[in-house]
Write a protein that binds this DNA or RNA. Structure first.
Length: 568
RNA sequence: CGGGGCGUGGCUCAGCCUGGUAGAGCGCUGCGUUCGGGACGCAGAGGUCGGAGGUUCAAAUCCUCUCGCCCCGACCA
């Protein structure tokens, strides 16, 4: 490809709206153009990269036995009503206006409903199972706040695969195979990924892993141990129980006046104690029943853990009236002392506290010197909180926290969708059973953006060969010199004939600008052809990621490059 | 959805407070000199100042409404 015949609108300056490196560099390198909040055009260079990623994904999916199909982005709302996800997705689900289209049409944010509709129509026997189907398609989600360029958009490309299995063992096999395919995909894309245990979220199901790329531009947190033995989404992370400190003399239970001081910060400041000396008492409504969670003042309740522990369908913070009724006080003065007839679940860290401070269940009063068993009792204790800095994993290894971006997610769905949509099959004994499902998603554009986040320097992007828009970038200097252009064109043609993607910068620009652009768009191998070099009988060969320049005879450069690619 | 910020040529921004001929740099076109890490000179093209309404003799500038975009937070398969 000749640059002058292509379309690569590079920018010298960084657009002001771009904040994260991947966004800045993708704009500057001419990969994308923003059309609206959360909607981007992929310009030719960006498009080529997406295609390369897609091909890797496709190859690995096919190798793992998944079968490609294509489903519509436009979907009947009725399908979503069958699973109740029309409400669960809330405003994220994009509804087409009734008057401009058929009543009740939505744009697919994901395709569990549609794929289940297809499978239930055609699959009726165990003999047709298992089967894994996938597509690579544009998804629509009306995100409240698109951000960070291409990392969080309202329209995005996703590879979504769905497995349909006759048994849990079969599901586990499909899941395992997808998990391994995902690892290969990220490896082939040259991405430093981490597979972490994850919560399964609103999609339901009982097991899932996320594939994360560590980057400051990310919106998620993962925790892992320094020894590499454990990695999890922070939502999911399980910690070693805290050990009790040295035992203190039990203080007397005392009621203190704390007028208007309702928060942990206010009370700890007033009483000159640490937040970690306080017990945070949070009243929830679990399936409509008031339920109390206790965590240490410096900890946060992890509602996913609490929900799982309670095994309840709905869990929300209790409203003000409920809190008044249960505690007899305004919000901010709740405590476990004196409460009965309500389920109280204490986080493990609370069970080892001594002489704690809590609300007194009396507006404007707190207790000090509160001790478990002597002053209050709990129904049970459990792990209810988010991991924090200083926690250790269950094997005792300290947890480290890292910001990350999710690039893939594998779930075991179970029968959530097949139950709701009556997707059943007859087993060997002629018995009707719901099909067991798994689903597996990869954010294709996120791989692109995460790859830039993971691999760039001050001058631009550094693509791995596998997903680079071109493999070799020939910079022709002195383009009006016939020898230079003949040599550069010959190298270009021969590389192209050898099946290597090559870009020839044949623009009549000054060398500095061409080198800057070359670094910016980040093609892994660069060949410089100039009058000066040719006079010495050489062209220059350089890696994007290195300053070392190899001088190679023009008639040997193609062989050298072909050899490199043969070894990849 | 709460809080903050910003909309002036393809990009970066000045001008607005204190109303009076729409500016600079980059990029673009032409000519010339240059030519190994974003050159220079000369001559050009390109803007309903996001939109609507209002105040005024006069609005990019003041007022009201509105739309869009970015950031923080909440939310998020």
């Amino acid at each position: 490809m000749h640059w002058s015949h292509f379309f690569i609108p590079t920018l010298k300056e960084t657009p002001a709206d771009a904040v994260v490196p991947s966004h800045q560099l993708m704009l500057r390198a001419g990969l994308i153009r923003q059309i609206a909040a959360g909607a981007y055009a992929y310009l030719p260079i960006g498009h080529r990269i997406l295609r390369k990623i897609e091909n890797i994904v496709r190859e690995e999916m096919n190798r793992a036995g998944a079968i490609e199909l294509h489903m519509p982005a436009m979907q009947p709302l009725d399908l979503w009503k069958e699973t109740g996800r029309d409400e669960a997705m809330g405003s994220t689900l994009v509804h087409l206006p009734d008057k401009s289209f058929r009543k009740g049409t939505v744009l697919g944010p994901t395709h569990e409903e549609v794929i289940t509709e297809i499978v239930r129509a055609y699959v009726s026997s165990y003999k047709q199972l298992p089967v894994t189907l996938y597509q690579i398609q544009t998804k629509f989600r009306d995100e409240e706040r698109p951000k960070s360029g291409v990392l969080r958009t309202r329209e995005f490309l996703m590879k979504d695969a769905y497995s349909f299995n006759p048994s849990l063992e079969s599901l586990n096999e499909s899941y395992e195979r997808m998990y391994e395919a995902y690892c290969k995909i990220y490896e082939r894309c040259g991405m430093p990924y981490v597979a972490v245990e994850a919560e399964s979220g609103a999609i339901g199901g009982d097991a899932s892993h996320e594939f994360m790329v560590v980057t400051d531009a990310g919106e998620d947190w993962l925790v892992r141990t320094e020894d590499g033995s454990y990695a999890a989404n922070v939502e999911r992370a399980v910690m070693a129980p805290l050990k009790a400190g040295p035992s203190q003399d039990a203080a007397n239970l005392e009621e203190v006046h704390t007028p208007g001081k309702a928060t942990i910060d206010e009370v700890s400041t007033l009483l000159k104690c640490k937040p970690s000396d306080m017990i945070k008492t949070i009243v929830y409504s679990a399936d409509g029943t008031p339920t109390i969670a206790l965590v240490r003042g410096d900890h946060e309740v992890n509602e996913a853990k609490l929900r799982k522990h309670l095994d309840c369908k709905s869990l929300e913070l209790a409203n003000v009236e409920t809190i008044r009724k249960v505690t007899g006080a305004d919000v901010g003065f709740a405590g476990p002392v004196g409460l009965s007839d309500v389920r109280i679940i204490a986080d493990q860290a609370v069970t080892i506290m001594q002489n704690a401070v809590t609300g007194a269940n009396k507006t404007d009063y707190h207790y000090t010197g509160v001790n478990l068993d002597r002053d209050f009792s709990i129904t049970e204790s459990a792990d209810l909180r988010y991991a924090v800095q200083g926690d250790a994993a269950q094997n005792g290894s300290p947890l480290v926290f890292e910001k990350c971006i999710e690039v893939g997610h594998v779930f075991k769905l179970g029968t959530k969708y097949s139950d709701a949509m009556k997707a059943t099959f007859l087993d060997e004994n002629g018995k009707s059973k719901p099909i067991i499902m798994g689903c597996y998603g990869i954010g294709v554009n996120r791989i692109l953006a995460a790859s830039v986040e993971a691999s760039h320097d001050d001058n631009g992007i550094c693509w791995p060969v596998s997903i680079a828009p071109f493999s070799v970038h020939i910079v022709a200097l002195d383009v009006r010199d016939d020898t230079v252009m003949q040599t550069a064109t010959k190298i270009h043609d021969e590389l192209e004939a050898a099946g290597i993607d090559v870009l020839l910068d044949d623009r009549d620009s000054r060398p500095g600008a061409k080198f800057k652009d070359a670094d910016l768009i980040g093609i892994p191998y660069r060949v410089t052809v100039g009058k000066r070099g040719l006079a010495d009988g050489i062209v220059e060969f350089k890696l994007r990621t290195s300053d070392d320049v190899e001088k190679i005879a023009p008639d040997q450069i193609v062989g050298v490059i072909r050899e490199k690619f043969a070894n990849l």
